[in-house]
Amino acid sequence: MNVDFLQLILTTSSYSAILPLGLGIFKWRSLSFELKILSAYLFLSLLTDITTLQLANNLINNLPLLYVLTVLEFALFSWVYYNIFESFHLKKSVIVIAALFFLVFVISLYQNGVSSYATAPRTVESIVFTIYAIIYFNQILKGNHSFGLEKDAMFWFNGGLLVYFAGSLLFFSLSSFILEHASLEMQRKLFTTPAILNIVQKLLFTIAIWVSQRKK
């Protein structure tokens, strides 16, 4: 039995948004506004992941798609954080950081071109969302949560983001170096790291949507 485990992980990762997205569509009417934004992201993520996989299988450069996903992902997740942060200053900061990120994105695109890996934007995105998730957890501990976190959709959402972005931070920051210096086989091995984390993230998003209940 000759199974290409790396390919299996990459393929599973590309289709991993199906589960939370399906659940999101099923529970659409009862979803909170933040989870509707998350479902919209899942739809875009599934679309780009499948297209990326098809392009890679046909040996076509899929990196331009990553730029598109990165900027949309940043905008949608920032929108979620704008809604779930309670402090006015944090809400303002989310807008300012989103504008700064867009600047980094444009500079990176201008300097490296659309066919290169979005190293700088992905690294900045990872750092920003790791910090946002930590801030949200701090907000939970300081706040007056009247129910267990296992029933809090935003806890699972933040868990998903923290695991994915903290775990992929090293990969994203070294991505240009890896693409330039590592062999193709090594590149495939290293690419499975964010792929595995992506699967974990989507599973945590599934739990977030599963436990969600509309606030009365």
């Binding site: 790791t130 939970i140 501990l141 976190l149 923290l162 903290a166 775990g167 931070l169 790291t193």
Partner: peptide, 22 residues
């Protein structure tokens, strides 16, 4: 090692928040 270290930190933080809030 680096990735697992970061993941360990992230998981510990999530667990800490979960247990503390409980």
């Amino acid at each position: 090692t680096g990735t697992l270290g970061l993941l360990f930190l992230a998981s510990t933080l999530i667990l800490f928040v979960f247990i503390n809030q409980k």
